[in-house]
């Protein structure tokens, strides 16, 4: 209301100065943004075609498409979600529904999730290389990359699922208990469906983080740009492809821009659905069961 435009008649010397400063910084940022976006769209759009999306990269990526890279990216994300969804949802349910916040396990989990969320991605890469590739003997593979990313997106997934569960009114739990419904039935029939929007938002945010990630994949899932035949093959993710084309391949910029445009479009779709779902989530709050 008033917050938006507190009016006053007395305008001092500072006021026009600040107005100028504010508008110029906003114009500066918008300008930089337009510059960045127009470059990506302009250079990337030229590359974009059905062939580009489906064909094999040729001449170390200078020409040809990104077919195998899209497949590898999909597989890495699939492994990542396959592991992180059960772990994340299970942990969130445990924290919210089965454990008291005072318990040491809950407190420890809270702290460790905060740390996990702050660890730089390159450190996840080091860990993934030492643990998944070397100690577990998975080598440079899609599996190692996906598992490393699963560790990275876990905090996001847990926090959003928790937020979803917290928004389910306690009446639901009490009514179910009064009816003599078992806790697991309440969980499957009432709590999880009601917490679904939060879960989906977390899921999309997690996919967004995973798909944008490069540093953690450099030495876990590797560089190989062939079509992967199994999860134990090394596979190159979209982001790694962009890096490789830009830095190691002379004349690879055009295809790097094309891949970047594909990546940014994917992310924009994901972010768009997050904000759309988030808004719906806030409006409905809970599911009409």
């Amino acid at each position: 209301m008033i917050k938006q435009r507190p009016r006053s008649r007395r305008s001092s010397f500072g006021e026009p100065l600040m107005q100028g400063l504010l508008w110029s910084s906003v114009l500066l940022i918008t300008g930089a943004f337009m510059w960045l976006c127009s470059d990506i769209v302009r250079h990337g759009f030229r590359q974009l075609s059905w062939d580009f999306l489906t064909q094999l990269p040729r001449d170390t990526g200078r020409s040809g498409g990104i077919g195998p890279i899209l497949v590898s990216t999909g597989l890495i994300i699939g492994v990542c979600l396959g592991v992180s969804i059960p772990l994340g949802v299970g942990t969130a349910v445990f924290l919210n529904e089965f454990s008291a916040p005072q318990r040491w396990l809950s407190q420890f989990l809270g702290i460790s999730l905060d740390i996990l969320a702050g660890v730089p991605s390159i450190v996840f890469g080091l860990f993934g290389n030492a643990f998944f590739c070397k100690t577990l003997g998975l080598g440079f593979s899609i599996l190692s990359g996906g598992l490393t990313l699963a560790c990275m997106v876990l905090p996001i997934l847990i926090r959003s699922t928790q937020a979803g569960l917290q928004s389910v009114p306690n009446d639901y739990r009490l009514s179910a208990a009064a009816l003599g419904v078992s806790r697991s039935a309440v969980l499957w029939q009432v709590l999880l469906p009601a917490a679904m929007p939060g879960l989906v938002v977390g899921l999309l945010l997690g996919i967004g983080r995973a798909i944008a990630e490069t540093a953690a994949l450099l030495f876990t899932s590797g560089y190989v740009d062939r079509m992967p035949t199994s999860l134990m093959d090394s596979g190159r993710a979209l982001s790694v492809h962009i890096y490789d084309l830009a830095v190691n391949v002379a004349g690879g910029e055009q295809n790097a821009y094309g891949t970047a445009l594909v990546l940014v479009l994917l992310l924009m779709m994901i972010n768009g659905s997050v904000s759309w779902l988030g808004k719906r989530f806030q409006q409905t709050r809970i599911l009409d069961v």
Binding site: A212, T214, I242, A246, A260, V264, N271
Partner: peptide, 12 residues
């Protein structure tokens, strides 16, 4: 939107 652009694209 600016926040959603991956770091490798900024690098490129």
């Amino acid at each position: 939107l600016l926040a959603g652009i991956p770091s490798v694209v900024y690098g490129l």
